[in-house]
Amino acid sequence: MNFLSNSLLLAQVSADDVAREVARLQRNYEFLSYGLTAAWVILVVYVLMMVARERTLKREIANLKAMLEEKR
């Protein structure tokens, strides 16, 4: 019985429908990956900005210290 109704249902589905459904799923996954990538990229960029700031801070402090030493 179940098999019969399933095959009846299948008979109504055209190849176009299947293709459309596959495309929809594909797009869904594609956008999910975009979303997750975007989220992580933002955080990683923020961390990189922090690292860059850390580096400039350290360098400037070292420079200034060296300069002060020299003058002293």
Binding site: I61, M67, L68
Partner: peptide
């Protein structure tokens, strides 16, 4: 974690500022 890192940077920034002031004073 990020906040704590940022906080330590703020400390360094303050150190840098005071060093700059010292450099100016000399």
């Amino acid at each position: 974690v990020l906040t704590v890192i940022r906080l330590s940077q703020e400390d360094s920034q303050r150190e840098l500022d005071s060093l700059r002031r010292m450099a100016h004073a000399m």
